[in-house]
């Protein structure tokens, strides 16, 4: 059920955006505010619990998830600048709390979870005006955002609204960048091979900015490009959209 332009919504930063990409989080909040949504940023945000869940430590994941759930008591949309964490809260919380006392409450909560671009396009139907200089960008589609959460081209739809932004497609747009949370440290060699290929793919597009919707992918791809000394900029789509639509 898509609520019709809710006046208020929660913003859940996610741990990686909170710590590594606060500008992206801020930009997401501004985009929502600009669209007329009053943003509530609850105090006490930590982590959605995905790392522990994916490693099989479900009790620990549940403990953490409970503290996070308590931050969103009102029946309002919960918006995340991450496809992966949104997928966790939307699709895997019901699994995690299956048979638990909160099961019904969780299902209702999961129904309110949105990834940022999903909310901007599907619910708010935002219109953007490009104020920036011509630029060529490329898009890394986060695996979880597409395959788990089920984004259907919302980020690309937003980019398409920007008149002076040219989108160059990666040769392997839908291939994993190799982050995978704990995967990147449990299988560092394979993960490293994957991210090096992704970085090379991004460079080959001739774009000057790599965009994505997930903190994990951004951290990973940025790290690999920086290591190579590549001039490519890596940016969260929220931050890019905010910059393009606001003259400095």
């Amino acid at each position: 059920m898509t609520p019709a332009r809710p006046p208020r919504a929660y913003f859940y930063a996610t741990c990686l955006v909170d710590l590594f990409f606060p500008d992206a989080g801020m930009a997401g909040i501004q985009l929502l505010r600009q669209a007329g949504v009053q943003v509530i940023f609850p105090e006490g945000q930590t982590c959605c619990g995905q790392p522990a869940f994916n490693c099989g430590y479900w009790e620990e994941a549940r403990d953490v998830a409970r503290t996070q759930l308590a931050l969103f008591p009102e029946d309002l949309p919960v918006i995340l600048p991450s496809g992966s964490c949104a997928g966790m809260m939307k699709n895997h919380y019901p699994e995690l709390f299956h048979g638990q006392p909160e099961e019904a409450q969780i299902k209702a909560f999961s129904g309110r979870v949105y990834e940022l671009t999903q909310f901007l396009v599907d619910v708010l139907d935002v219109k953007l005006e490009d104020l920036g200089e011509p630029v060529k960008v490329t898009w890394h589609s986060s695996c979880h955002a597409v395959r788990d959460l089920g984004l259907k081209g919302e980020p690309q739809a937003l980019l398409a609204q920007l008149a002076k932004v040219e989108l160059a497609t990666l040769a392997r747009e839908h291939e994993c960048c190799g982050f995978g949370g704990t995967f990147s440290v449990r299988q560092p060699e394979v993960s490293g091979a994957m991210v090096c290929d992704k970085a090379a793919d991004a460079e080959a597009t001739g774009a000057s900015v790599v965009l994505s919707t997930d903190g994990g992918c951004l951290l990973n791809v940025k790290g690999a490009l920086d290591q190579k000394g590549s001039p490519l900029k890596v940016q969260h789509i929220a931050e890019f959209l905010w910059e393009r639509t606001h003259a400095r």
């Binding site: 710590l19 590594f20 606060p22 440290v185 490293g192 940025k222 790290g223």
Partner: peptide, 25 residues
């Protein structure tokens, strides 16, 4: 630990100077 393997292929991830939570506060 952990960073050792990460930095074989990537630069060290450095947290922002102020977290989003801190800025919102």
């Amino acid at each position: 630990p952990l960073l050792r393997d990460w930095t074989r292929f990537r630069t060290k991830p450095v947290p922002a100077r102020r977290s989003l939570s801190e800025r919102m506060r």
